[in-house]
Amino acid sequence: MLHPSRRALLSALPLLAAPATLRAQATGRTLRAVVPFPPGGGVDVFARPFAVALSAALGQPVVIENIGGASSRIGNAAVARAAGDGATLLVTNDTLAAVEALPAPGSSPVLPQLAPVLLAAGSPHVIVTHPKSGLRTIADYAARVRDPARRPNIALPGLGTAHHFASALFDQAVGGRAEPVAYRGGGPAIADLLAGTVDVSLVTLGMVVPHIREGRLVGLAVTSATRAAAVPDVPTVAETVAPGFDVTTWMGVLAPATTPPATLAHLHAAGRTALEDATLRERLASLGFEPAGAGPEEFAALLRTTVARFASVVPAAGIRAEEV
């Protein structure tokens, strides 16, 4: 597994501040929430409704800025360089841990340059295919993965991302290998899958729920230990081809490391308040996200654990930093 227990990930703490208190502290200026991927991917799908609720909690505008490239490294660096004045946040997923586990040659670790604010939500990934691919079940896909003569390709939101690691873990679990095809984010990957130019994709569930429900894509399996309420007819990898398989992703919020502790606490409280918003919770549930709300210490511990676990996958998976 690449995460702590589901209960630990999704545990909620008492709210730290009431909305009125948060609005009283608002500066009135626009807060920039950087998503380090192109529009349309799983993080973007989470971040946009979250930003609306966060804006209401803070009483100030929150705008999403997509800075994609290099498996999130460019956006991560933009936030790390920003002033620690509470006006810039990073909204990302466990690809942050993946790039830390697989540093680019000559690069410096990015986590020391960022301060955890909020572990916001958890979600399974899903392995999806096009209705005309000939793959009807996850067993069909696993059989292809094990057959070098019919090796499938898999569209991924970048090499060295959390999705790449999840795909590599699936390959190890079933005893084969799919051919990764890297894209600059989940949106472009799914666009090609919808066009039928690739065999399958592995992405965060939230970005393809409408496609699965409306039959444009076929959900072969979710990667979590239990089925996702958003797509209850899609089986798990664990119940079909790889008993015990359990890989989930998380969404988190970070700030520049120079941000003062009081500002970090204020932003965490606002994030917790946003996650209590009924409209946001309904939207997240419909997309397969489960709100979390854990604080900076818990989030920092999860980051360390995830980095270590991803790093342990690198040698067996043959993932090389120079290819990312």
Rank of each mutant, 00 (worst) to 15 (best):
S5R: 08
S11G: 15
S11R: 10
A12P: 08
P14C: 15
L15W: 01
L15M: 09
L16P: 00
P19H: 14
A20P: 12
L22M: 12
A24V: 12
Q25H: 14
Q25C: 15
L31H: 13
A33K: 04
V34I: 15
G41M: 06
G42F: 05
V43G: 04
D44Q: 04
A47I: 12
P49N: 13
F50G: 05
F50Q: 14
A51H: 05
A57P: 01
A57Y: 01
A57D: 06
A57C: 06
G59H: 10
Q60G: 00
P61K: 06
I64C: 00
N66C: 11
N66S: 09
N66G: 00
A70T: 11
A70C: 04
S71G: 08
I74K: 11
N76I: 13
V79R: 00
A80R: 00
G86M: 02
L90Y: 08
L90V: 00
V91T: 12
T92M: 02
L96Y: 02
A97Q: 07
A98K: 04
A101Q: 08
P103K: 09
A104P: 11
P105Y: 03
S107G: 09
V110D: 06
V110E: 01
Q113A: 03
P116V: 11
V117K: 03
A120L: 04
A121E: 01
G122A: 14
V126M: 07
